[in-house]
Amino acid sequence: MNLAIFIEQILNGLITGSMYALIGSGIALVYGTMKVLNLAHGEFYMLGGYFTWYLAVSLGINPAIAIPAAVAIAFCLGMLIQKLTVEYLILRDNWAFTTIAATMGLSIILQNAALLVFGANFNTVPSYVSGVMVLGDIRISWQRVLIFVVALATIGFMTWLLKYTRLGWSIRATSQDRDAAQVVGIPVKRVYMICFGLAAALGALAAAMLAPINAINPWSGMPVLLKGFVVVVLGGLGSFPGAIIGGLLLGVVEAVGVQLTSSEWRDVISFTLMIAVIWWRPWGLFGKK
């Protein structure tokens, strides 16, 4: 195998992995604060893709405005859905199961609503930037470079948000101990709502950036959700930095795995990796027991 092509595949894997990281970190954020496994997370990705497509292609708005708008809509939608369903369920007995079942139901509703509204077609968005970056023998399209830059910027922003803002302190306090956080005056319910919204926004952003490469259809969410699960299992469920590293790692492992086998086996490789990790280190590759 040609070394340049191999390096190119690894770099592409890292770029795909950066998007997995955004998706996984949304799942980790919701699980970390609420201990809720959100099976509707893939649908935020799918809807984010549709919002971007609708604003940028159907209405012809400049992507620089359309993408933030799509992300903002997803943020509000995430908060609304949390307010209407999860907020009540987590107060009841047996919430660990009922929240999984309810978000599974939500995911089916959103999928089929998208099918009725947008149809079953595959919708693509033209590349935001054109051309190919050439570094010696390595060629990577600028679109992919842009994806990576946006992912890094988002991760930086989220890290700043969680570490240095009052909101971030509230989120981290709530995830450590809900009752104690409430005692010191943190509005736990509002924190939950904002976390759900942030997770939805992260998923939607990933979809918006990937839309020129991966066409969007009503069933785009499910495979993305499963990839997100692999990411959070690798990094330790509920850990934000774990999800970032897990995402990048998964991207590279998949790129190498596909080189060794073929692209049909990509998902089998990642799910097998995930089950193996759960078997040997259920707390994640980097987490503590």
Binding site: Y31, K35, F97, L237, M274, I275, P282
Partner: peptide, 30 residues
């Protein structure tokens, strides 16, 4: 069932079983 034995957390069980079913489906298709 063997990996599930070691896990007490419900989300992990849900994720493992979903992932396993996907593996079976893709293998049958491939």
């Amino acid at each position: 069932g063997t990996p599930i034995l070691r896990i007490r957390s419900m989300p992990h069980v849900a994720i493992v079983t979903l992932g396993f079913a996907e593996i079976v489906r893709i293998c049958i298709a491939n």
